[in-house]
Write a protein that binds this DNA or RNA. Structure first.
Length: 429
RNA sequence: GGAGAGUUGGCAGAGUGGUAAUGCAGCGGAUUGCUAAUCCGUCAUCCUGUUAAAGGGAUGCACAGGUUCGAGUCCUGUACUCUCCGCCA
């Protein structure tokens, strides 16, 4: 959510920011929003004048004489009727206004490349060199079948499409990678927190998932609960409605949770293997920091560096993508994606998404802190980034580290989490 | 699933139908000086107002309704917390 006063004072700046994100006047009319805001202010002024009069009358009853009272009560009642009409009008306008405000996207950073869709994202750097194979590399599904690491066909009979079951060393590898990431984040001052995958509706608005993409979310009407697509959802609302002391900031969370996505908009995409499944595990990085662009940029870089370190520890070649304005979601101020090299697809595939949300989410969740220097109450800034998401990350992992004999090499940093093993697979010694 | 108790500002905590006490912490100011204290104001949101303030007003006691001239207080529903019982990985 944005500051309506800022919108009203800088309409052209807001319009140009929205245009960069691909919003048209038909989708969301800023001038209409501002007009509505002014209408509401006028309605508030007039209804508050009525309230004031009514309060005065009510307070005068106590000291009024018995003869005076009936007239005062009658007058107060009639103002009450008038007030009720005004307030109903106000509530109707307010509902329209709230709906528009919830749909207002965050303004993109001036640093973000301007573009219409993912084709205009900019590669900032490439780290590591895609491996050249002296044998024909197997894709990750072949490797899993060869090594008895999965139950892909059987599990879809039981659980439906886009589900996965992995077993033996690969099942342990999945958890080992999470532990490596969790240890790294803990060593960097993050609070490790395992959170539920169930959510009420309100946090989905707080995160900015709703009202935008309801189709993507599993909903259980019997309990009025949703399945979380990411721990960011839960962590973003964990401190909602709190007024923090600045000394408590920054708050760093390493949140682990099972994640659920309907993948309704991805029909037919990535249907083979582990790339796009309905349920997966994610360790998420989440930061709540001061209301300060420079400070948040610093944390944004830190989060990015941590996830780059993860890919380096896993010895995966990757590229850092700066996401352009048109490909960024509504909540985002600035976004980087990390993509790891997938040999059999001959391209980089997304593993991490690192975003600075500024105060857009905190305004929705009413997450504030009191500033130490001026004593003022301010909205906090939030940032989030993937720590690691599996099984997706196993795709480049298996394919990049495969050997001619079908075994998979375990990078040095991961070996302690795999009982010291240097290779896994049927032919591993 | 059942029974009981509870939910008041950043925190603590009073308030049984008539303007939300008080303390602590934070911020601003004044004063005394000797490293701390004292006093005053402010300290949740919104409207109005202003270059900015000041000032005025409305709202706010978990949430949503209701009764009433007037609700933190009475009534109804909901959420959550705690205690106990039941069931349970």
């Amino acid at each position: 959510m944005l500051d309506i006063k800022y919108i009203a004072e800088h309409p052209e700046e807001i319009k140009s920011g929205m245009a960069k994100k691909g919003y048209t006047k038909e989708m969301l009319d800023v001038d209409a929003l501002i007009a509505l805001y002014k209408d509401i202010a006028a309605l508030k002024t007039s209804s508050q004048a009525l309230s004031e009069e009514k309060n005065k009358l009510s307070n005068s009853i106590k000291t009024a004489s018995a003869e005076e009272r009936p007239a005062i009560i009658a007058k107060s009642k009639s103002i009450g009727e008038e007030l009720k009409v005004e307030q109903e009008k106000l509530a109707a306008e307010q509902a329209k206004y709230d709906d528009m405000m919830l749909r207002m996207p965050n303004m993109p950073s001036p640093e973000s490349p301007v573009g219409k869709d993912d084709s205009e994202n900019v590669v900032r750097r490439k780290v590591g060199t895609p491996r050249t194979f002296d044998f024909t590399p197997r894709d990750h599904v072949e490797l899993m079948e060869l090594n008895d690491w999965s139950e892909l066909e059987r599990i879809t009979k039981v659980c439906g499409s886009r589900t996965y079951a992995i077993k033996n060393e690969l099942a342990r590898l999945e958890l080992a990678i999470h532990m490596l990431v969790i240890d790294k984040l803990a060593a960097n001052g993050f609070t490790v927190i395992n959170v539920p995958s169930l959510s009420k509706e309100k946090p989905l608005y707080g995160q900015g998932y709703l009202p935008f993409s309801r189709d993507e979310i599993y909903y259980m009407p019997q309990d009025d609960l949703y399945l979380s697509g990411t721990a960011e959802l839960i962590l973003n609302s964990l401190r909602a409605d709190e007024l923090l002391n600045e000394n408590e900031l920054p708050i760093l969370y390493a949140g682990f949770s099972p994640c659920f996505r309907r993948e309704a908009g991805a029909a037919g995409k990535d249907t083979r293997g582990l790339t796009r499944v309905h349920q997966f595990m994610k360790t998420e990085q989440f930061v709540i920091c001061k209301n300060d662009i420079a400070e948040s940029e610093k944390w944004h870089q830190k989060l990015l560096a941590l996830s780059e370190e993860v890919l380096q520890d896993l010895e995966l070649p990757y590229q850092v993508l700066e996401v352009c304005t048109g490909d960024m979601g509504a909540p985002k101020y600035r976004q980087y994606d990390l993509e790891a090299w997938v040999p059999t697809q001959n391209c980089y595939r997304e593993t991490h998404s690192c975003s600075n949300i500024t105060d857009w989410q905190a305004r929705r969740t009413n997450l504030r802190y009191r500033d130490n220097t001026d004593g003022k109450v301010k909205y906090a800034f939030t940032l989030n980034n993937t720590g690691i998401a599996t099984p997706r990350a196993l795709v480049p992992f298996l394919e990049n580290h495969q050997q001619a004999d079908g075994t998979v090499r375990i990078p040095e940093k991961l070996q302690p989490y795999m009982g010291g093993k240097k290779f896994i697979g049927k032919n591993a010694r």
